[in-house]
Design a protein around this nucleic acid. Structure first.
Lengths: 207, 207, 207, 207
DNA sequence: AATGAATGAGCATTCATTCAT
DNA sequence: AATGAATGAATGCTCATTCAT
């Protein structure tokens, strides 16, 4: 790494550019969560950031690249292993059910952020065919993770035998409800996570 | 009822007109399911039906009236008491949990149809403010039904005590996953219903 | 003339058709006066008459033919010599100024009727080029009449020497104000005529 | 005021933009005068200016804003006190009749311009309800001015007693004839003003 | 690095008109 | 004699995108 005059306090050109890219993505996320992807126009983002519309094209090739970056960020936040060890599902010694619980808690936490929420707000069919595959590819690791965890639980007996396709999709796609619940729930985020974990793991029936 | 020459085999003008109205709604439902409400253009519907765009306006006042009709149809199908008694939740003698199971089975059945699927595909924020209230009013009975059933189950002890806000929204909004599952699931519709009921009622954890 | 069974009380097919043609023109006149020519749609007329839109095409070739008929009727009412001798300008023994006064009174009277009002409500530039010439031709006798009267007055000395072009157009086109005045004026029609005659003949200046 | 390189000969960006705005209004005025407000389409303006249709929307929010700007300009030109003192009606020492004469001369002068002509070409009922009030408010000072002048003349005895409603409307709405006369009259503008003033003040009758 | 200006493509909607019945 | 059904053409307007500066 090259040494810099002024130390780290003065941002380089590249750093400023990257910060601006993040600002665009952050703005897009907030707007998508509020008004939806289809209703989002680049003019909205530009107005939100107090810049002119073409300025955005300096940082992104087109609208699709923004949403691609957004999804990449969201998936990255979900897969990030460098923080929040408390809800990291792949910690050694966890049963499949315990890992699954962490998976859900992680999803709840990530959803509390606008960018993370887009993980569950954007539907593939809303996005033009071109980048649809790219986004599917990007989001695939999250699904794969859940799939691996469920299979682990089935293998170690901590998860009941159930239709694997339905169980998997119900669990993962069901998380699309999170952005709604996150807004509705009046308690703390961790209470919301507790409630959802409770329902998903134990079901709704009394015993 | 007036008798008709040729019996019932020859359609009257009104019947044909109503059939065309249904065709528009059906087409809109299929397209909304595929590409979403925002991306749906009347040109798409017209092309799908092989008619000119203004023809649509002969049967509907505007785009909003189409989606209003669509939602009315979907809710009507869900609330219909004249058929499918097997998944009618309000049958006498059922516990809350049993009624809830029927509610879910009913949702799965209705979702197998494009029109019914829109019950869970359309999000309020996608729709212009004007008819939003109308649609909310129309769809409200479905949510109210679920609410009533859950409360019944809590009262008769067949449903576990749990965070009511989360439980309710998880249960009802969670059904928004159905259109996705319906497309993915390879088995019969009733097997899908079984699998979902199993998960929702009993949860994923082994015992 | 052929004798008819039932005498004159039962209308022939042609008479009924003509009555319906008049109804269309009358409705068009009322609507044009209220909302203007450009804003008038055939649907408005049809709704006003409680018939379907294509029905109008049974009686008129197109929208232009309606307005042509309307203007012909209006001009005919203005030129009609069989009634209202009191404001007939060409009565023998009248000076030019007296004839002009009658011309104005006649205009006021005709304007009290919806059809007549269109004489002054429709502007040539609002009408498609095709029938513009036809309408100009139809309306020309009214202008010619005024022109003749002014010239007579100039010749017999009852009208002051003035720029003929301006005088003529000011007087005739100025009558376009009549529909507005007819609606605003609270007195009788004849008082309105008196007031206008007074202003046009004597001007606004005190002496 | 900031000094500029090249002096005043090179237009700034804002000046060019404002000139283009004026060009749109000017084009709209010319077209409205020729074909009327209702028949005016933004496509016509765009074609007239050799630009694409959406370009108009870069300078104006919608069609209504154009006509609002147009009317504001027209009224502004009529009320402008910084030039043409020769036809400024409120000069001290003028009788009501003299002021009224100047009012008419001013109207004739302003009408010689397309934008000014729209003051008398647009009718309230042609304009959508929304901006109707705005335009009425904008145009109101002109009518109020005429009203004040007529009252002054009645008070100082220079204007004859006459039906006030008729006199006022005849005088002001009668000016709607000006655009027609301006096109027809072959003489100079001042000769036209002379002729009209003569007729309005003295009437058509010989003495 | 940023933006003013401009535009092609597309959309919801309206309307005069036609045609088969 | 009347109308249900259908449509081509046009309109106001939006938006993602480009380009010169």
């Amino acid at each position: 790494m090259t040494k810099r005059a002024w130390g780290a306090s003065i941002q380089s050109r590249e750093e400023k550019a990257e910060l601006k890219r993040r600002a665009v993505v952050q703005s897009a996320a907030r707007l998508i969560r509020r008004i939806g992807y289809d209703a989002l126009s680049l003019g909205d983002i530009a107005a939100d950031l107090h810049v002119a519309k073409p300025t955005i094209y300096y940082y992104f090739k087109n609208k699709e690249e923004i949403v691609l970056d957004l999804m990449t960020s969201a998936v990255g936040a979900f897969l990030d292993t460098t923080a929040h060890a408390e809800d990291y599902p792949d910690a050694p010694g966890l049963s499949g059910a315990e890992a699954f619980e962490r998976f859900i808690r992680r999803a709840v936490r990530v959803t509390s952020n606008d960018v993370g929420a887009c993980l569950f707000v954007l539907y593939p069919h809303q996005i033009p065919d071109q980048i649809r595959r790219d986004i599917d590819t990007i989001a695939q690791p999250v699904a794969a993770w859940a799939d691996r965890i469920v299979r682990t639980g089935l293998a170690d007996g901590s998860i009941r035998a159930c239709d694997p396709i339905v169980a998997f999709n119900w669990a993962v796609n069901g998380l699309r409800v999170l952005p709604i619940l996150t807004e509705l729930h009046r308690g703390t985020q961790s209470a919301l996570a507790d409630a959802i974990v409770d329902l998903v793991l134990n079901g709704i029936r009394a015993r």
